[in-house]
Design a protein around this nucleic acid. Structure first.
Length: 589
RNA sequence: GGCUGCGUACCCAAGUGGACUAAGGGGACGGAUUGCAAAUCCGUUAUUCGUCGGUUCGAAUCCGACCGCAGCCUCCA
């Protein structure tokens, strides 16, 4: 099956055939590093990262370049406003960008060239264009002559005549044609020394578009495969890149042009230039978002829409996506409980199907797994349709949950049932029946469990092709052993309450924890917790619940439970002191 | 004004001539399960794809008009 790519140049889907068979060069326009990255900056890198992973998965050797534009008018202005040097500001903002990419699991970028480090290549292109009479010098500026490029406008589908009509820019004395653009800008007297570079035309710095041409050519060659960026870059940025590069080399610059949809908020583009958006934008920096949402969730959110469509950002939408993503993460935890082995470890790197899933295998799970596997690949082959690829993963997840459910594979089910016999003699008959029904599997030796584990690992491997499911989510309490222990005490207390049929107290525990932002789930294999809203005061909240429940138990003269609470907390190294003013607790008593 | 796109259920979102009496997710509702929940499973939730025409044996998908929205034409991922 062939990979199809939508090419902005032809406005069609085309079969993907790299310039050099088996090898792919990709270039994505990166940020101008003068302000912290916002949600929109994450879209291109996440999509391209998924594209690279898929191409690698399909056997291509891929080189991916993302530029850092660190010489620019806005950068100079912002550095001056903040009272720092341009390199210092650029360094800081670049680091901010890198941190966000790491959190988003964007790991595939091979080169991050900086404009300031490619001045030689930029000057070289300018000179070649001047020599070809396709560029001219005016007072230390160098302009590209758009009339020198016969097919100028082919990417954005506009003619020079159209443009002359629409342009607000005056031709003035400097430019010959209003569409001409600066390749090189002469330094202005008040600009700092670190953005003045020597050139044959005097000190100055690159124009906006030229750095991408120079860096792409330097790292990927004069013709490469895929060039991408946001839709808003089609004109003038990419149009001008094509014009200057192809006029310079007489070769095709990039074979396929990919453009991702823009992030929107209240149906408006998230844009730096829109004053109404400025405030929103400040809150939508990637570092802010990553403080609230996991990188995996943001990545999943971006990939759940086909890349050419706009993405509507909202908290409600992210909350909805969080639920969807958790379906997978819960399933992985469930399989681990069933099989006693992690799906994250030993997932097949190439997402290959297990032997029992051979083409002629016709049992239900084999068919579903094969089908999901096929659909995933077909979706990605079709212009990297990650939305449909994820839908295939959902179908597989559902099939696995169903399989576990119907075959009663949940680990320790039999053991739990036995415990229950002791709890509730009246129900013993039902319980015995259920014990017989369950095939009481334990561990990965059981054939059905082994299949679930295999299929779960394929699911993880497919997700990893999109850059998801790399590792189990870190518990919100990681590193906070005290919180873990106090929660364990809650679970123990609640189990005691339930065993004693003190359901009001049991519910008081759960309701109290829910209010504190912790969800309890009673499963056949035991009670688990999930922290939805952590925070510095979580420990205090958890202890408040303990004290409240204990107080209720004492009022009901249920001293057995009250004592059980104190004992459970003692296990957590917490002592309680009952004083006339109330009960106080301290750690490590 | 020119050039791109878009408008699919309560919300998000795939699908761009026949396997569509339209994927998938969220939500809602009913059932199983649970002491009660949560999770999970089962089921229901668009005879219809902005509106009106046209082409076609056949259209959400092509064409036209209209309505609404967005992007680019100035810095932007």
């Amino acid at each position: 099956m062939n990979i199809q790519i939508h090419n902005t140049l032809t406005n069609r889907k085309e079969p993907f055939e790299p310039v050099t068979p088996g090898q792919v060069g990709m270039y994505l326009c990166g940020p101008t590093v003068y302000k912290p990255s916002h949600i929109g900056h994450a879209v291109g890198p996440v999509i391209f990262d998924a594209i690279k992973r898929y191409l690698v998965h399909r056997g291509f050797a891929v080189t991916w370049v993302v530029n850092i534009t660190d010489v620019d008018d806005k950068l100079i202005a912002e550095a001056a406003a903040q009272g720092v040097t341009v390199p210092e500001l650029a360094r800081r903002v670049t680091q901010n960008y890198f941190d966000a990419l790491a959190a988003l699991n964007v790991t595939g970028i091979d080169h991050f060239p900086k404009a300031s480090e490619h001045i030689g290549g930029i000057i070289d292109i300018c000179e070649r264009l001047i020599a070809k009479n396709a560029a001219y010098v005016v007072d230390g500026d160098v302009y590209f002559d758009v009339t020198a490029d016969a097919d100028y406008g082919k990417l954005s589908n506009r003619t020079l005549a159209d443009q002359q009509e629409g342009t607000r820019e005056l031709t003035g004395k400097t430019k010959r044609h209003p569409g001409d653009f600066a390749l090189w800008k002469a330094a202005k007297p008040d600009e700092p020394a670190e953005v003045k570079f020597d050139s044959p035309w005097g000190p100055g710095r690159p124009g906006w578009h030229i750095e991408c041409s120079a860096m792409a050519i330097a790292l990927l060659g004069e013709t490469f495969d895929i060039h991408g960026g946001g839709l808003d870059l089609i004109f003038p940025h990419h149009e001008n890149e094509i014009a200057q590069s192809e006029t310079c080399t007489n070769k095709t610059f990039a074979k396929y042009w990919l453009h991702n949809g823009l992030t929107r908020f209240n149906t408006k583009k998230v844009s730096k230039s829109d004053p109404a958006m400025q405030k929103v934008l400040a809150e939508m920096t990637l570092s802010n978002l990553l403080a609230t949402y996991s990188g995996e969730l943001l990545r999943y959110f971006i990939l759940s829409t086909q890349y050419r469509s706009p993405i509507e950002y909202s908290q409600a939408e992210l909350a909805s996506k969080r639920k969807g993503l958790s379906t997978f993460l819960r399933l992985f935890a469930r399989i681990e409980t069933v099989a006693g082995a992690s799906v994250y470890a030993d997932a097949p790197a190439d997402a290959a199907l297990p032997a029992w899933c051979a083409a002629d295998a016709d049992d239900e799970l084999a068919v579903t797994l094969r089908d999901a596997h096929d659909r995933f690949h077909a979706a990605m082959d079709d212009d990297f349709n990650t939305a449909v690829a994820i839908a295939a993963l959902f179908e597989l997840a559902n099939a696995l949950n169903r399989y576990i459910e119907h075959r009663k594979l949940d680990a320790n089910r039999a053991a739990t049932v036995r415990e229950r016999t002791e709890l509730d003699a009246n129900r013993a008959a039902t319980v015995r029946e259920r014990t017989e029904q369950a095939d009481a599997p334990s561990g990965a030796d059981h054939p059905s469990v082994a299949r679930v584990l295999d299929a779960g690992r394929v699911l993880v491997a497919l997700g990893r092709v999109l850059g998801l499911f790399t590792a189990p989510p870190e518990a919100a309490t990681a590193g906070d052993a005290a919180v873990e222990k106090v929660l364990a005490a809650h679970v123990a207390v609640r189990a005691r309450c339930r065993a004693d049929k003190q359901f009001e107290l049991a519910d008081a525990v759960r309701d109290g924890l829910t209010a504190a932002g912790v969800t309890l789930e009673d499963k056949a294999s035991g009670t688990t917790w999930q922290i939805d809203a952590g925070g510095d005061d979580l420990m205090d909240k958890l202890m408040a619940v303990h004290l409240d429940v204990r107080q209720r138990a004492r009022q009901a003269k249920n001293f057995a439970i009250a004592d059980a609470i104190r004992d459970a907390l003692a296990e957590a190294n917490i002592t309680l002191e009952d004083k006339p003013t109330g009960t106080v607790w301290h750690l490590g008593g």
